[in-house]
Design a protein around this nucleic acid. Structure first.
Length: 827
DNA sequence: GGCTAAAGGCTTTTT
DNA sequence: GCCTTTAGCC
């Protein structure tokens, strides 16, 4: 507040459009910022935070919630730059992030994990303790699989994946297992309810929570515990939520509970911009920013009505619309706008630019995925050689991860540097998961699922029979399997197995100081602990042996990955230590007490530093997202899913696989809302491009080993021809299955750019799966299967995954899913 | 108990 | 086509 300049000329407000400025300056109540793609959303949020601080708000009283860690990091950096100036040039690249004391910018999940650590004991949540670990998806599935089997159900009828998603949806709707059970009134739902309960029981036993619990438990805690709610509301007076269109019910509840009711105006005296006598009460300072046209997480429970009904949820809310796009050229924007207008369930809003010129969007129909990949590799090479666009300003977007493979091959061949945005990939590798499982057991010996993964890996003579006996003891005495291992002699297991169990327990005890994390045997640093785990578990020697035996490069890599894990622990450690950040002082990222609540109770049980750090490390590992790996500093093309692309922008982008069944995905065919979400996904992809955009569609695509004819995506026609140029480069193909007439039809349709014909072709192809199944395979007809040979169709069952019962001469009767079976009708 | 080979099932997107 | 599970053998 030392600046002499008037508000209007203040640097923090310079270069803003009137609505942007309004969004930055608004005080005194809830605000909805409807920010169209590329309209300067991030800019508005970071300026708003900086402005609040500039006007005297305490940084620690500001909470900004984003969708990914990466978005949070960037936001924090921008705010820091705005307030403290750009980083000094001599600052090393790996220096700790400069902080604005106590400013909280994180993801919903990371925030909730912290709140859980801090308040779980106090909130007295059933079955949850503050020392919980977060179950990664693989462990969730393992637990569910066990639950399904224990319930005497088959994993074919109750695939853990779909059971998990049912449970996850329930949690996102804030339904506990009991509430879910109370509502269940048919076999399916009562069964899911049973599995839900068993799953919860398993989580509690393991001292674990899942991703959804983090949100659900915090929402419950804030709702039911006035003291905790009050503490949070007192701390965070200013709330900002990014990507609000993608919040689900629980996230909405958390935001609502954190925002509170607002306060009487006299309590606001001294707060930025509030004149005490202008209003009696002022709503909570919650500012949400989003774009309904970019809502792409409906499948994860995101509820678009959160943003559409914001004014109802927060009476008196101010709405600001940002429509001007500063990112893309007119043709790209035109194409995006034309496409998104096809959605019926939307509020039409202007999307415009004052940029003139720009190349039209290029739509290319290619032969197959190899052709597609080569075309893009060539295009990128040309752009790079013309030095118009650096590698890092290029990206490829696709609907499903499987599509990255062929692109990778093409890029390798063309010697184009590339990175794939898959932050989770590293932690999903077998050897890394092994090491993490050991670490989870070290952090939490009740974690039976992690224990099961590593207790006999590498093999140490603890076979299935012995482990079953030990598990039985654990079951009977209702104790963790790890405890039962200590009592292996009682189980009557083979002497060799008993000895192995003792050695295993001894190893873990050595690492944890028998649970105390104190004493001579305990490591001094996290990196040392990780290194010791890898070494003493014999994982290192195991994988060294594997590598030596096979001599293959990918096995060599495993050892490097284990080393990499040690380094990442070291890096984490450096950032974790609050003392390493001189500016932070009272901004310890894990300490939410100081300085606003000096009387806060200390945690009941002091957690040893190493254990606290290990937990934090495992937590950060569990909460990485694919999008977090996107690093603009790298001189490489980025490959990623459309979902991961949200919020990013590139000079030149390629969007591949615009085919029916892929984009829009076949899973969305049956439902109009889901189709509209697919359309928004395409819209997100298009609007990522600043200057150049190529969209490709392959006539043939090999999926799971079988080459299939495709139908061009409806979105291609919907983009229109005004802003896009369509070219067919697929005519070089020679396919035996295609009659000359068909070939003529395709080429004629495409060469003329006559997408109406293509669309008609698609319409007939996209008829409902059931009708098509009956039409294509009438009962009694003869078909040929690539492996089983000829057979007769006995019965056809329609539905989402149409099946046919076929009697083969060679193998007898088989039920085949038509989608996968590659049947050809012969008679 | 532990390894190997063959068979079976299946894929959307993510914190 | 790939990964996971299972059966069979040492």
């Amino acid at each position: 507040m030392t600046e002499p300049a008037s508000d209007n000329t203040h640097p923090l407000l310079q270069g803003l459009t009137p609505p942007q400025r309004e969004a930055v300056l608004h005080t005194g109540g809830p605000m909805l910022v409807l920010a169209a793609a590329g309209s300067g959303k991030t800019r508005v949020i970071s300026r708003r935070i900086a402005w609040l601080v500039h006007k005297g708000a305490a940084p620690w009283s500001i909470l900004a919630l984003t969708f990914t860690n990466k978005a949070a990091g960037e936001m924090r950096e921008r705010v820091t730059d705005l307030l403290l100036g750009p980083p000094p040039p001599d600052m090393p690249a790996d220096a700790p992030p400069r902080a604005v004391r106590g400013l909280t910018v994180t993801t919903f999940h990371a925030l909730c994990a912290r709140l859980m650590r801090r308040y779980a004991e106090q909130a007295n949540l059933p079955g949850v303790k503050a020392d919980f670990t977060i179950f990664p998806t693989a462990d969730q599935l393992a637990l569910l699989k066990r639950a399904v089997k224990d319930a005497d159900l088959s994993t074919t009828n109750w695939p853990p994946r779909s059971v998990l998603s049912a449970i996850s949806n329930a949690k996102n709707e804030m339904l506990t297992a009991d509430q879910y059970a109370a509502r269940a009134n048919d076999f399916y739902h009562t069964t899911i309810a049973r599995l839900y309960k068993a799953y919860e029981h398993g989580l509690h036993r393991a001292g674990a929570v899942d991703f959804d619990d983090l949100l659900l438990l915090v929402a419950t805690m804030l709702r039911d515990n006035a003291e905790i709610r009050g503490a949070c509301q007192d701390r965070w007076r200013h709330l900002l939520v990014d990507e609000y269109q993608d919040t689900n019910k629980v996230q909405f509840e958390i935001a609502r509970l954190l925002a509170g009711e607002g306060r009487p105006a006299d309590a606001l005296a001294g707060m930025p911009g509030i004149e005490p006598d202008t209003a009696k009460t002022v709503g909570p300072d919650i500012c949400v920013v989003g774009d309904p046209d970019q809502a792409i997480y409906g499948w994860r429970g995101a509820d678009i009505s959160n943003i559409l009904d914001f004014e109802t949820h927060f009476p008196g809310a101010r709405t600001v619309k940002l429509g001007q796009n500063f990112r893309s050229t007119a043709p790209i924007l035109g194409a995006a706008d034309t496409l998104i207008k096809k959605n019926t369930r939307r509020k039409d809003k202007p999307l415009f630019t004052d940029k003139a010129g720009g190349e039209r969007v290029s739509v290319v129909l290619c032969r197959d995925e190899h052709h597609e990949a080569t075309l893009i590799a060539d295009w990128f090479t040309r752009l790079h050689e013309g030095s118009t666009v650096p590698w890092r300003e290029m990206a490829v977007f696709y609907r499903t991860n499987a599509l990255s493979r062929v692109m990778e091959e093409a890029f390798r061949q063309a010697r184009i540097p590339y990175v794939i945005a898959r932050g989770t990939a590293f932690y999903e590798r077998e050897e890394v998961r092994d090491a993490l499982s050991y670490l989870r057991v070290v952090a939490n010996q009740a974690d039976d699922i992690s224990l099961a993964r590593i207790v006999n890996k590498p093999t140490r003579g603890l076979g299935k029979t012995s482990l079953d006996r030990i598990a039985l003891l654990a079951e009977r005495e209702d104790m963790p399997v790890f405890e039962a291992l200590r009592r292996a002699p009682e189980t009557g297991a083979a002497p060799g197995a008993v000895k192995s169990a003792a050695r295993f327990v001894e190893m873990i005890d050595g690492l944890t100081g028998s649970g105390s994390f104190m004493g001579a045997t305990v490591s001094g640093t996290l990196a040392e602990l990780v290194a010791r785990v890898i070494d003493e578990s014999s994982l290192a020697s195991h994988y060294r042996k594997v590598a030596n035996a096979s001599g293959s490069e990918s096995d060599e890599e495993r050892l490097d990955n284990l080393d990499e894990l040690v380094s990442s622990a070291r890096d984490f450690e450096a950032e974790f230590d609050p003392l390493s950040d001189p500016i932070a002082e009272d901004a310890d990222p894990l300490d939410m007490d100081t300085p606003f609540d000096p009387d806060a109770d200390a945690p009941a049980v002091p957690v040893p530093h190493l254990l606290a750090m290990l937990r934090a490390f495992l937590e950060s590992v569990a909460l990485v997202a694919d999008a977090d790996t996107v690093d603009p500093e790298q001189g490489a093309v980025t490959l990623m899913t459309l979902h991961a692309a949200k919020g990013l922008e590139f000079d030149a982008a390629a969007m591949i696989g615009l085919e029916e069944g892929l984009l829009p995905h076949s899973r969305a065919f049956e439902s109009e809302p889901e189709l509209e979400e697919e359309r928004r996904l395409a819209f997100v992809g298009i609007t990522r491009a600043r200057k150049l955009l190529h969209i490709t569609s392959a006539r043939y695509r090999t999926v799971r080993g079988a080459t299939e004819r495709t139908i061009p995506s409806r979105f291609l026609t919907e983009v229109g021809t005004e802003h896009a140029h369509v070219s067919d480069q697929s005519d070089a193909y020679d396919d035996v299955d295609q009659t000359p007439r068909e070939r003529e039809f395709d080429r004629g349709a495409a060469v003329r750019g006559d997408l109406e014909r293509v669309r008609e072709q698609r319409r007939s192809g996209a008829a409902s799966a059931a009708d098509r199944a009956h039409e294509e395979y009438p009962e009694g007809c003869t078909v040929r299967h690539p492996q089983f040979g000829e057979g007769r169709v006995m019965r056809v069952m329609g539905g989402q995954h149409a099946r046919a019962v076929v009697k083969f001469g060679s193998v007898g009767e088989k039920t085949l899913v038509l989608e996968y079976a590659r049947l050809r009708r012969v008679l």
